[in-house]
Amino acid sequence: MLDNKDFSAWLSRLSDSHDIYGPKKTRKGMLEWARLEGGQLPDPEPGVPKSSIKTFYFPQPETLFEFSARPKKEDAFRLHEPSRHQNPRLLIGVRPCDARSVVLNSMPYQEDPYFQENRRNTFLLGYACSQGCSTCFCTWTGGSPVGQDGLDILAFLLEDGLVLEPVTERGEELLEKAGSARDLTRAQEQKVDEIRQKAPASLPEEMEPAPRLREKELMALYDAPFWQELSDSCINCGTCTFLCPTCYCFDIQDETLRGRGRRIRYWDSCMFPLFTLHASGHNPRGEKIKRVRNRFMHKLKYFPDRFGPLSCVGCGRCVRDCPVNIDIRQVMKELLAI
């Protein structure tokens, strides 16, 4: 148990060696990731920040290689890896759904040196959710509002401070530097237990779609009429894919300016027709219905087939910000109902 003053002092000491980020309210009242300095604390607002933490693992954009674009130079147009000198990063106030997304994305990115280096370099101090929001559904996807997956330290927020539980070895090492932790009082212990028990129950009814979707022969539903109805309203804006913590598709492009070049990768979206366009002009997913279906099938069928869990953590960002109110919870229900 750390009171807020000691927590702040600890962060302040850590900020000498770590870049610290956490959710802060913007002037417009939106919760967003911000750099925390001098022992600043994140705002303990319920729910997830506007954007997911994938930006820390999968930056927008990431420089894969650099090269000289001066033809007369000896190493002209030869790619080399950029030098990366980065302080370790500590993210505070990460919600368990976001933390779990890092574990899921790590599966396809197993061999990806950039993602894995960012993962090694980023420490996560999570805040357990004491209750669900109207848009979130982590328990449907195999997560929990008090889950530990992906976190180094899990914190329970109490009125007079936080209870910090190490999850990983490196989280424990970090906590050792916190010092001045006080033993929990009986009332505080009870409060933590209460959050553990009540938080999952505050989410929408437990329908456990993950195992049920796994049992269902989803490919047989590929031509179900419901996809047409669903995609009719979609405007292919890509908001869902950019906000989604588990959407990890990317494009690679080269750019040159004044004799210097770099190969970058940045977020791409299967909602865009260009995503699959061949140089010949042929487009295998040229129609909107195919793109909408691909996004949901990837999350609910293709990814689970390959790796096990659904490619969704139930953070609800896509539900919260879709301009035409497409709701993945509804999609799961419909798929299970057919």
Partner: peptide
Amino acid sequence: LENRMKCGLGVCGHCNVGP
């Protein structure tokens, strides 16, 4: 088969045909 590809490693998501 042929499809648009970026990574060639099964990560970037461009070339999938269903699963």
